[in-house]
């Protein structure tokens, strides 16, 4: 067996096992860590396909940013997975067979016949770096969806503000500008009183 093939099987096996553990792990923090492991293996698979930019983006964006955020959220919220799983065994008799049936049907349709190497020969690797090729594609042919994606991010930002920003009236926060601009007469009142004679 060629080295690359062996590597593919090793990475895929770890990926599948890690993905299974994400769903079955009892502790949500473990589940998140298994997801990180799954992402690492997926990025290895992309490297095997010579898609180095996607591999690095997966690690930087998903593992570096998204999953860390996830970990924070999971640690902050006390999620009781046992309660979430309560209905699992009760609904398995119905859900299990349906899921199996659908998987079987999908395998029957998407067999190697339609998506095997014969039906879909691997595209020729792009000459030069594929980071550059991707960059060129995004900023020329795909500039329209690229801009739309940025508008979607802006909407997400606005929505987050609209749904979460609350002005509290009971805070004792001070405005530094007003503090500095304060005059003596705002704070101190000089009252002239006749001196007490004894």
């Amino acid at each position: 067996m060629e080295f690359k093939t062996a590597l593919f099987y090793i990475l895929s096996a770890i990926l599948v096992l890690a993905a299974l553990r994400v769903v079955t792990a009892r502790n949500p923090v473990h589940a998140v860590l298994f997801l990180v492991l799954a992402f690492f293996n997926a990025s290895g698979l992309w490297l095997l396909l010579q898609a180095e930019f996607l591999a690095i983006a997966l690690i930087v964006v998903y593992v570096g940013a998204v999953m860390v955020l996830f970990l924070f959220v999971v640690m902050m919220l006390d999620i009781n997975l046992e309660r979430l799983r309560q209905g699992f065994w009760n609904n398995l008799w119905l859900g299990g067979p349906i899921a199996l049936l659908m998987v079987a049907e999908m395998i029957a349709v998407l067999s190697a016949r339609s998506f095997g190497p014969e039906a879909m020969p691997a595209p020729a690797a792009a000459a030069g770096s594929n980071t550059k090729a991707l960059g060129v594609a995004i900023y020329t042919d795909y500039v329209y969806p690229f801009e739309l994606a940025s508008v979607i991010l802006l909407v997400a930002l606005i929505a987050a503000v609209a749904l979460n920003l609350r002005k509290r009236k009971d805070t004792k926060q001070l405005d530094p500008a007003r503090q500095i601009a304060v005059k003596r007469k705002d704070r101190v009142r000089i009252v002239s009183m006749p001196s007490e004679k004894e």
């Binding site: 739309l148 508008v151 979607i152 909407v155 997400a156 606005i158 929505a159 609209a162 749904l163």
Partner: peptide, 10 residues
Amino acid sequence: LELLALSMYA
């Protein structure tokens, strides 16, 4: 579709 849907969810 996503632009429409995301605005509508909010």
